[in-house]
Amino acid sequence: MRAALSSEWLKLRSVTSTFHAIGAAALMLALGLVWTFYAGELADERESIGTAAPEQGLLPLVQMSLAVIGVLAITSEHTTGTIRASLTAVPRRGALLLAKAGVVGAVTFVAAHTIILITYGVCRLIAGDRQLGFNEISFSHDLPMLLTSGLSVTVLALVGLGLGFVTRSTAGAIVSVVSLLFVLPAAATYLPPSWNTRVAAYMLPNLVPQIADQQLSRRVGDGLLFPWVALTVLLGYAVAALTIGFFMLRRRDA
C-alpha cells in the first residue's frame, strides 16, 4: 500500500494540471481582496454595510477547482492509456482506488484549508475596523465554518474521483460534479414548499452551514439537519461515489 501511495503522489505532483487547479483555487485570495476593497469603499461612504464573507462567497470556486484534481487523477489515465500500467503495478483494484483517494484527499485538504485560512486572515486585515458585516465576528466563532468549508472541498474532490471511475470521462465527471453542486440545489427550489426545505437540506452546498451550526434554526420541524447528521451526509457523498466507482472498476476491463 505504501508503494501505491508513493506512486499516486508522484503522478499527482508530476502533472501540471494539479498546479493549474490549485492556482485556480488560489484566485479566491485575489478575488477576496477585490471584494474587501470594494466593500471597504462602500463602508466609507455609508459608514457600515453588510456583505458576505469572501471565503464563503467564493467557496464554490475552490470546490470546483480542486474537484478537478480528483476527476483528472483517474480520467487522465484512461485518456492516455496508462490505467493498464497502474493496474499492473497495483493489481488489487481496491488498493488502487484507496491510494488515489488518500493522495487526492490529503492534497485537497491541505490546499483548501491553506487557501481559505489565508483569504480569511488577509481580508480581515484589510477590512480593519470598518463595519463590513463579515469582519465583526470573532475567529473562534468562524473557525467551525472555515474547517467545514475546507472539508467540503475535499469531499467534492473525492466525489469527483469516484465519478471519474464511473464515467471514465473528464467532461462527464465534471458535469456530474457541477450538477451536484449547482443544478440539483437549483432544481430543488421548484419542489412543493413542503418538500423544498427538507430536500435542500441534503444538498451539498447547504451542508456546510448546518455542520458549522450557523443556521438561524436547527429545529427538525423546519427540515434542517443537526450538525452530526449533516456531517454524516457530507461524508456519505464521498463514500457513495467511491463505492460506486469501486464496483464499476471491478466490473470493467481497463
Rank of each mutant, 00 (worst) to 15 (best):
226 F>M: 09
41 E>P: 07
207 L>S: 05
39 A>G: 15
27 L>A: 00
27 L>S: 04
114 T>S: 11
206 N>T: 14
34 V>Y: 08
213 D>P: 04
68 V>P: 11
202 Y>V: 03
133 G>N: 09
196 N>E: 01
64 M>A: 03
122 V>S: 04
249 L>D: 03
34 V>P: 15
139 F>N: 13
215 Q>E: 07
193 P>H: 14
199 V>T: 06
96 L>P: 00
68 V>I: 15
139 F>L: 11
132 L>S: 10
163 L>F: 13
254 A>N: 01
216 L>D: 13
87 L>C: 05
146 L>I: 00
169 S>P: 00
8 E>H: 08
166 V>W: 04
152 S>P: 10
82 T>E: 08
181 L>G: 03
58 L>Y: 04
140 S>N: 13
111 A>Y: 01
43 A>S: 00
128 G>H: 05
172 G>E: 06
6 S>K: 14
147 L>G: 12
237 Y>R: 15
170 T>I: 02
4 A>K: 04
10 L>G: 02
231 L>W: 07
123 C>R: 04
192 P>R: 14
29 L>H: 07
81 G>M: 07
119 T>N: 07
172 G>H: 05
183 V>N: 08
201 A>I: 09
252 R>Q: 09
13 R>Q: 06
230 A>C: 02
252 R>L: 02
219 R>I: 12
157 A>V: 09
81 G>A: 12
156 L>C: 08
143 L>V: 09
12 L>T: 06
9 W>H: 09
46 R>G: 03
200 A>P: 01
27 L>T: 09
96 L>W: 07
150 G>V: 03
107 V>C: 07
90 V>T: 11
243 T>F: 11
63 Q>S: 04
4 A>P: 00
203 M>E: 04
45 E>Y: 08
177 V>C: 10
124 R>W: 11
242 L>E: 13
144 P>C: 06
66 L>W: 09
244 I>C: 08
83 I>N: 04
55 E>A: 14
152 S>G: 15
48 S>G: 12
51 T>L: 05
170 T>Q: 13
72 L>Q: 00
229 V>A: 14
166 V>M: 01
138 S>N: 08
59 L>G: 05
141 H>V: 15
28 M>F: 02
151 L>N: 11
93 R>E: 13
53 A>W: 04
113 H>Q: 15
135 N>A: 06
136 E>K: 09
251 R>M: 01
243 T>R: 02
153 V>K: 14
216 L>P: 01
207 L>F: 02
90 V>L: 07
243 T>A: 06
65 S>V: 03
153 V>Y: 10
200 A>L: 06
11 K>A: 05
15 V>Q: 05
21 A>C: 03
172 G>F: 03
230 A>H: 11
110 V>N: 09
101 A>Q: 05
245 G>Y: 05
